[in-house]
Amino acid sequence: MDAAFDLDELYTASYRRLVVQLFALCGDMADAEDAVQEAFVVALRKRRRVAAATNPEAWVRTVAVNRLRSGWRRASMVRRHQPRVPGPQAAVEVGPEHVAIVTALAQLDPDQREVVVLHHLADLGTAQIAAELGLPEGTVKSRLARGRARLADLLDEREEPRHA
């Protein structure tokens, strides 16, 4: 295919057709749509390969079908091993304080959020976090300090003003 390859045109021309084809394969519209969407995400990342393909739509379809097959393998593995997993536990109750903390955590930088959660919720020390994430311990400590400071600010903003 030449340099004038347009992924947007491919998407417009083939999205519906691909979804219908994958729906016929899997019998689940949401799975079919997800597989086609993910295939187009891969196509964005690998635009040159798609452009060089003899049939770009077939290339995208192959990626989408492989995504479905991967999902089937995962589901098969879960079905095979699930009987050995203990049954459900009582529902986890989430109070307003927990919701406020999770909302504040969502506003942290992902790297900071990860170390704050591992330290405070998984009860890991900085050395354990560093080993688990493959980071220097100093990096973990600085992310933890910045994350805590930002979290404190976010949670203070949520408190109602006190009246004198």
Rank of each mutant, 00 (worst) to 15 (best):
M1A: 10
M1E: 01
D2A: 15
D2C: 08
A3P: 00
A3W: 01
A4E: 14
A4N: 12
F5Q: 10
F5Y: 09
F5N: 11
F5E: 10
D6M: 08
L7E: 04
D8C: 02
D8G: 09
T12W: 10
T12K: 11
T12D: 15
T12V: 12
T12L: 13
A13D: 15
A13E: 15
S14A: 14
S14M: 08
S14Y: 00
Y15K: 13
Y15S: 15
Y15H: 14
R16L: 13
R17N: 12
L18E: 06
L18G: 09
V19H: 04
V19R: 03
V19W: 01
V19Y: 01
V19F: 02
V20M: 12
V20G: 07
Q21N: 08
Q21T: 11
Q21P: 00
L22S: 11
L22M: 13
F23S: 13
A24T: 07
A24K: 07
L25M: 09
L25C: 08
L25S: 04
C26H: 07
G27M: 03
G27V: 02
G27C: 04
D28S: 02
D28E: 09
D28I: 02
D28F: 05
M29I: 10
M29W: 06
M29V: 13
M29G: 06
M29S: 11
A30I: 00
A30M: 00
D31S: 14
D31Q: 13
D31N: 10
D31T: 14
E33C: 12
E33V: 13
D34E: 11
A35D: 11
A35W: 09
A35C: 12
V36I: 05
V36W: 06
V36Y: 03
V36A: 08
Q37M: 12
A39E: 03
A39M: 02
A39Y: 02
A39T: 03
F40G: 03
F40R: 02
V41D: 05
V41N: 00
V41S: 01
V42K: 05
V42Q: 01
V42Y: 07
V42S: 02
A43N: 06
L44M: 14
R45F: 01
R45A: 11
K46F: 01
K46A: 10
K46M: 08
R48A: 15
R48H: 04
R48E: 14
